[in-house]
Design a protein around this nucleic acid. Structure first.
Lengths: 353, 353
DNA sequence: CTGAAAGCGCTTACAG
DNA sequence: CTGAAAGCGCTTACAG
């Protein structure tokens, strides 16, 4: 069943069929009805490839999840649930939200994973093969993104999510970021309000935007409030649970430990909880903990974790808006958007005197 | 840059360029080299639509997540993190695994959500528009799947995941399922081994395969061991956390309550834990709990939940194998596969005398 | 071994 | 208002 068949059935030309499909004006209602009826009756759908070939959009957005670990095997496939962990806490909900919002905007979405630099060509090829009209890149470090911009043509429509825009690229790239800076200062000010003065931090991966900015904001906010930053109150993590565990253990080594700790994401907070409990300390009685991301699990931790909520659906929405505007106007306006953030108070922080 | 350009550059015809791209034999190595070199140098990628149009595969698999709630608004978009919950525990990790495995098999994946019966045409259209070569359908109840088979042509290649195959369809449909039956009987036998005799159950949504089979297996296994099934030890849930909470409250109403409860999925176990704690009971001292799915969160519950592990990556692998075989041979062999299951023992079940 | 040509299914100037 | 025709970029018999 193709447009020719429909044309024959209705007794018009393919041009006319095409015109009603594409909502041209100047088609007499009667003709339009007849064509529509035949289309429905014969269950006809225009071939997407043929449409693409004559220059129409593919109506497809690409979503590239970058998780490069070049030191490991080239294409590491998720073999067990443990590997899914990483995806689960941040990427997965974002993927869902992105698909959902794209679908709502009448776009298909093509999802791909990139596990090594050697797979970066996937992005370029999806564009060159004309499979997608635009793409979101998520999960890349600044280094990775640099590589991407080297490989992928500059005139393809991409928005980078959760990515630091380097000076050289600023004004050239579309991106949407979480208000990491504000979120951390809010979190800290909340702790300070509760009376805390000895506040520690578990940092994230400092090569990622979120890791770096959260640490910076922590330092600035502390000094703005004239509070000291003690080196032994800093634990360096990399966003994984285990690193959170180790970092917290390190912080708790000395006999004087902070009364509150800001943990740069919830996944590390899980590890931190474990270290605190192993040390025989109670949350929040002995030590208050605040996380970041408000991931699914935080509400179920004991005690439920106070955390900075990042609205993944809102990030998805912003990215798609940027993408679609760019696609429709066929121009790349280098806009940086920031999505705001809010503290979800639960029971892991207490007031002290 | 298209095949004509490459042809001109190399000094051959487009036919030849096409032949080297498609690995035809009988091309002199020298020619092949030259063409490959130009392709690389000019960063040429063949247009996927044009290839599709001349009959090649689209190299794309569809993944349709069915979550029909017709009583709610037609297209409910995920607006807040709470909505993501449902996706998180089961779908999300599956989506990840599916994308990963498809990518590894050199396939793209097009993901779509279906939130109402009115959107079921999306499946048909993706096929008819020739966007995909095959598709996995997940999350549908038997009713939903029936509707799907009514709408979607029988000659499209689909595999149903976690779906009951009705008698009338058996032998016509490709599907992969979890060994729900074996998983539940294993779980129960584990409890029995620990000395439990008064065992309760919180059922899932009985209109879904997993809900129904888990309940059936529970009843059969109990009777095989000559253990009674007390009506007041049964709580009816629907796989959501809140339903688990309510169901457990109902079970705990009478003064005699079971020493162990099988909960049909981990999400409901979260609710069940809450109800048990509110009642002032301890897990596993007063009551043992075993879940199903071994979802991400189960290890972090307190106490960590013993659960039946379902290997989502393995399900993904099976589905893709089925799909690819069907696509390559261009025939639908109605095969039903079952993925095995294993108990992950943690601290929510205790031995009793 | 290789090129010229047909054809995949559409859309869109162009002409009427 | 509508049809005939060109053309999008490929692949694949066909002929040589």
């Amino acid at each position: 069943m193709n447009s020719k068949d429909i044309a024959k059935i209705v007794g018009v030309s393919r041009s006319t069929v095409s015109r009603v499909i594409n909502n041209y004006p100047d088609i007499p209602p009667a003709t339009r009805e007849k064509v529509l009826k035949a289309i429905k009756e014969y269950n006809y759908y225009p071939n997407a490839s043929a449409r693409r070939l004559v220059g129409m959009k593919s109506s497809t957005l690409g979503l590239f999840i970058i998780d490069i670990r070049d030191n490991e095997e080239p294409h590491h496939v998720i073999e067990n649930n443990e590997d899914l962990l990483y995806g689960n806490s941040f990427f997965s909900p974002f993927i869902n939200a992105f698909i959902d919002q794209s679908n709502k905007a009448q776009y298909h979405v093509l999802v791909s994973t990139v596990y090594s630099s050697g797979e970066l060509w996937k992005i370029q090829s999806a564009f060159c093969e004309k499979r997608i009209d635009g793409a979101v890149i998520i999960g890349s470090s600044n280094d990775d993104y640099k590589k991407i911009t080297e490989i992928v043509d500059k005139d393809f429509i991409m928005v980078a999510v959760d990515l630091d825009v380097e000076e050289e690229n600023a004004g050239k790239v579309m991106s949407v970021n979480v208000n990491n800076y504000g979120g951390v200062s809010d979190a800290l000010e909340y702790l300070i309000e509760l009376g805390h003065r000895d506040i520690g931090i578990i940092t994230g991966d400092l090569s990622k935007l979120s890791g770096k900015v959260r640490f910076d904001s922590f330092k600035h906010t502390l000094s703005r409030h004239c509070l000291p930053l003690r080196e032994d109150f800093i634990g360096y993590g990399d966003f994984t649970e285990y690193s959170g565990y180790e970092a917290m253990k390190k912080i708790l080594i000395s006999e004087k430990y902070p009364t509150a700790v800001f943990v740069s994401n919830d996944t590390m907070a899980i590890g931190a909880y474990r270290a605190i409990k192993e040390r025989g300390l109670k949350i929040p009685e002995d030590i208050s903990v605040i996380g970041f991301d408000n991931s699914y699990i935080s509400q179920y931790m004991s005690p439920p974790l106070t955390s900075v909520n990042v609205s993944l659906p809102e990030i998805a929405k912003c990215s798609i808006d940027l993408l679609l505007e760019s696609i429709n106007n066929n121009e790349i306006k280098p806009i940086q958007k920031t999505v705001d953030v809010e503290i979800i108070k639960r029971n892991s922080c207490r007031k002290i005197e």
